[in-house]
């Protein structure tokens, strides 16, 4: 604990760096996967392609992906951009299939009812299918958030800053306190983000809240 007290600035800085790495991929994968699901609802032919592409991208191990991205897009090897792009790819690999199947999975009678009360086909996705699919997408987003925060620590092997540098630095110096602090902070950050997502979900999706006193 003395080590923690003496190095509180380092821990704070590493946490801030880590947040800088993970917020963009989490937000981007949510926005892009909803847009892709919308595209699929307009042109169902691309559904198989997007599902297969997601499964393939998911398969690529992360450390190799971090290293191959700079070659493909021409960034510097130790640029945080590589990590952000790689984490967004993993986020999409998890979220896109969920977004597509859950928005497509709206029960036929609901779609018919929505059409009957006057929803045009182009309104259906945003006003009926997406709101109904939202709880499922939120559940997948929580998984994305947890795995993104954990995966981002691997960037330190390349020399990208973040909580992961507590692992590489702690290993080189043989400091177990530093590594344990890094693990605790990573898990803590993941839990905090998960809680935040649950709260945001309650605010943004009031229709998923059960009204008090009513049991279903």
């Amino acid at each position: 604990m003395r080590w923690v007290a003496e190095n509180i600035d380092l821990l704070g800085a590493a946490t801030r760096e880590h947040l800088g790495l993970v917020v963009a991929p989490i937000v981007l994968s949510l926005v892009l996967s909803v847009l892709l699901a919308w595209l699929v609802s307009r042109t169902p032919r691309i559904a198989t392609f997007t599902t297969v592409a997601s499964a393939l991208l998911y398969t690529i191990p992360s450390l190799p992906l971090f290293l191959v991205i700079p070659v493909v897009i021409g960034t510097a090897l130790r640029s945080p951009t590589n990590i952000v792009i790689a984490l967004t790819i993993y986020g999409l690999a998890l979220l896109v299939p969920t977004a597509i199947t859950s928005t497509r999975g709206t029960a036929a009678p609901l779609v018919e009812a929505a059409t009957a009360v006057g929803h045009a086909p182009r309104q259906l996705f945003w006003q009926v299918q997406l709101p109904l699919a939202a709880p499922e997408i939120l559940a997948a987003l929580r998984v994305v958030s947890a795995s993104t925060i954990s995966l981002a620590t691997l960037g330190s092997v390349l020399g990208v800053a973040g909580l992961g540098r507590l692992f590489t630095d702690g290993f080189q110096r043989g400091l177990q306190e530093e590594i344990i602090s890094g693990i605790v902070l990573t898990v803590g950050l993941a839990l905090a983000c998960d809680l935040l997502l649950v709260l945001l979900g309650r605010l943004a999706l009031p229709w998923t809240r059960r009204s008090p006193g009513v049991r279903t």
Partner: peptide, 16 residues
């Protein structure tokens, strides 16, 4: 178990 970062676990066990 799944929220434990791989590199943290590998390096911690490495120095132990």
């Amino acid at each position: 178990l799944r929220s434990i970062p791989t590199l943290g676990l590998v390096t911690l066990l490495g120095i132990w």
